[in-house]
């Protein structure tokens, strides 16, 4: 790690300027970046630490919508009562990352921009329909989360662009989300498969909207539109869930590696998607009961 410079800008403009330098890298919590630097996988010349930029590590609620700073830690998300209530799936996904120590640092922005196919919070964010607020030398833009990752370690962020925040729309009534992952152990492990589901019911309990996203079964987290469509119009009965499973299995195109075989991942992706859908439905029903 010789010859690395460190900068901790106090404004977005300063950060964007600093990132024009060749070999500059953004750092939020550093729980991916520092590990990669240590093993020599990446050798930045300049590390630009975002955490001093006002608001980037915070969480705001605006008329029922949430703006989550890209560098907000997993611990901060877990402690945010309102967010936890509104989007339990996102918070439980974020809180699965690492251990207590890692939770104090790890951010949603880092989880997404590190672009691991197995990143836990990404399927949950995609299922919830979150968008990304991005600034760069050419100004600001906003895109859905699923538009960021393009492959392992690769994103659509241009040189000098910084992810500032995630925006979660005001949640529709009777909506619930959930995230589940399979790891052989109980913690400190990387998802063999992950599945995030968000469903919205009508007053009668019929599903009127659903988004399903699975992780670790393709080069990026996948938004499986056919799986969501399989639920819409149903009360998440067995037939609908069978269709959801079939859609997930059809969309999955995993590799076989040390963490699991392709066959196993495909099977379990379908299982987890079904289980997450049922949890999301229960939450949506409870949401209705309270409303």
């Amino acid at each position: 790690m010789s010859g690395v410079e460190y900068l901790s800008p106090g404004s977005v403009a300063e950060a964007v300027r600093a990132l024009q330098v060749d070999g500059a890298r953004v750092m939020a919590g550093g729980t991916d970046l520092l590990v990669q630097m240590r093993i020599g996988r990446t050798k930045p010349k300049l590390v630009v630490d975002l955490k001093r930029i006002p608001g980037i590590a915070g969480i705001r609620e605006e008329d029922g919508a949430f703006i989550i700073g890209a560098a907000a830690s997993g611990a901060a998300l877990g402690e945010h009562e309102a967010l936890r209530k509104a989007w339990p799936g996102i918070v439980e996904a974020a809180n699965l990352i690492g251990s207590t120590q890692i939770q104090g640092r790890a951010s949603l922005g880092g989880n997404l921009c590190n672009a691991s196919p197995a990143a836990d919070s990404v399927p949950a964010l995609i299922a919830a329909g979150a968008t990304c607020v991005i600034v760069g030398p050419n100004g600001e833009r906003e895109v859905p989360v699923e538009a960021i990752q393009v492959g392992p370690g690769k994103t659509t962020l241009a040189n000098g662009e910084v992810l500032l925040a995630f925006r979660l729309p005001k949640r529709a009534a009777h909506t619930g989300d959930a995230y589940l992952r399979l790891i052989p152990r109980t913690e400190m492990d990387i998802a063999v498969v992950g599945a995030g589901v968000c469903v919205t019911l009508d007053a009668s309990g019929k599903c009127i909207a659903a988004r399903v996203s699975v992780g670790a079964v393709a080069p990026t987290a996948l938004l499986v539109e056919a799986a969501g469509a399989a639920l819409v119009g149903s009360s998440l009965d067995d037939a609908a869930l069978t269709n959801l499973e079939a859609a997930v299995a059809a969309a999955a195109r995993p590799i076989s590696d040390k963490r699991g075989t392709a066959e196993y991942r495909t099977k379990v992706a379908a299982v987890l998607a079904r289980r997450a859908a049922l949890i999301a439905r229960d939450r949506a029903q409870k949401d209705g009961a309270k409303a």
Partner: peptide, 29 residues
Amino acid sequence: ALNEEYVYNSNGLLDNASFLDYRMPVASD
């Protein structure tokens, strides 16, 4: 019994030389 193993690729190189992918039990297991 449950998860620990050395995983070699076809070149005889170890694929899981870390505590992330060499899965010893953690306390909560």
